[in-house]
């Protein structure tokens, strides 16, 4: 009889919980109860460029990225602009229809470090799951674990959730408010140190202050 995942998440084993003062106040570190309000994250945004000018800059950035994409695809041919230009403008405007999220910026150093680390981790994750798939005893003890989120709303959180899915043995199953529900292949593995490390890397990637205590 193989163990299947119980649908209720269980509390992590006591021994694996490092002291984390920030867990006690996740709602302070995250950007407040209203997710669509950009003004609710003042402490996390170092540069206070906001409002219309800020949004225009984001839009122009999107136009630039899409134009480069179009250029790469069409081989930088001028006649592609007949269809391409309206498409780039329209494409950059579509996300404005979605609910607004706080803006973000990338740090180049953080991105390079993250890409390297990500490559290593995805190999680790794939080798781990391949080993289990071929092993006679798969060594599974699946289950759900909660993990409190301290990253701000928007891109950092989504990036965090998607990267968890590629780490060895973890899968992001749900985001409930400021709580992330992680599915683990083996609940005996240590979850918190890995996720805390990942959180640090995401903070570096998005040029956020490194430790969450800063926002108190």
């Amino acid at each position: 009889m193989r163990a299947t995942t119980p649908l209720r998440e269980s509390a992590p084993a006591r021994g694996h919980l490092p002291p984390r003062p920030d867990i006690l106040a996740p709602h302070i570190c995250a950007d407040g109860p209203e997710p669509t309000d950009t003004n609710a994250v003042p402490a996390l945004r170092p540069g206070p460029r906001r409002g219309r000018w800020h949004r225009l800059r984001r839009w122009l950035g999107a136009v630039l990225v899409l134009a480069v994409l179009l250029g790469m695809l069409t081989g930088w041919r001028a006649e592609s602009l007949v269809f391409g230009l309206p498409a780039v403008v329209l494409g950059a405007m579509l996300p404005l229809l979605l609910p607004r999220v706080p803006g973000w910026r990338l740090s180049l150093r953080g991105a390079l470090a993250f890409a390297l680390w990500f490559a290593v981790q995805s190999v680790r994750g794939a080798v781990d799951v391949a080993r289990r798939a071929f092993a006679p005893d798969m060594g599974l003890r699946p289950g759900f674990r909660p993990y409190p989120l301290t990253l701000p709303q928007g891109a950092p959180r989504v990036m965090f959730a998607n990267t968890i899915t590629l780490l060895p043995g973890t899968l992001c199953a749900e985001i409930e408010g400021d709580m992330l529900i992680v599915h683990m292949l083996d609940t005996r593995m240590a979850l918190e140190p890995e996720l805390a490390a990942l959180e640090g890397r995401i903070r570096a990637l998005f040029a956020l202050p490194p430790n969450p205590e800063l926002c108190q």
Binding site: A126, V129, T165, L171
Partner: peptide, 15 residues
Amino acid sequence: RFPDIFCRLHALTKA
């Protein structure tokens, strides 16, 4: 081989 839908998702996403 994996026993339930969540474990199967692990196999699909990572490998």
